[in-house]
Amino acid sequence: MITIIDYKAGNLTSVRLAFQAVDIEVKVSNDPAEILAAEKVVFPGVGAVGTAMSELQKGELGDAIRQSVAKKTPFLGICLGTQILLEYSEEDGGVETLGLIPGQVKRFQPKSKWDKVPEIGWNQVEFKIEHPVLSGIENGAEFYFVHSYYPATKYDENCYATTEYADATFSSIVGKENLIATQFHPERSGRIGLQLLKNFSNWSGQC
């Protein structure tokens, strides 16, 4: 059973439907106790980081996320959910985030007038490591991205994959131990995205 965190910032429906499409049971919850007790956790998100962080701090969801990760629960971040796992985001005038992965979230700077921001569409993801959640997926496969800000990990060991856009070669998958998080949307990335979600559902949390 996978628990999807509901903090009103979500692409919740599409994440839930994508897991269900590959016959994986999911529960949507905003209850910190349930999240802490969950077997596996998905932290989705679209929207702006400021609103999302204040929503997380209002309840005890932020703490539940920290504790869940600390107790080695397999944990998947998606898009804004991923950005919030780093230490700091440039968005909304600068926001301190959960700090579970060392690094920052930066805004794309167009190199030419044709580099549109947000980046919207399919782009290649170059894997830097082998990982059970990426098993059976071709290196360089394309996933669906929608974002104006991108993760920049402090240490290479937390950068599991890179993607190129505008001025950046950014960390499109970040991770640490039982935590893996994608800047792209596996729930919107067709068959390949569903494969990633399925892999996550089978993952023990060990690399």
Binding site: T13, S14, L17, A18, Q20, A21, Y144, V146, H185, E187, R188, S189, G190, R191, G193, L194
Partner: peptide
């Protein structure tokens, strides 16, 4: 539609 396809 959302149940049937998993692209945007």
């Amino acid at each position: 539609v959302a149940r049937s396809i998993h692209i945007p």
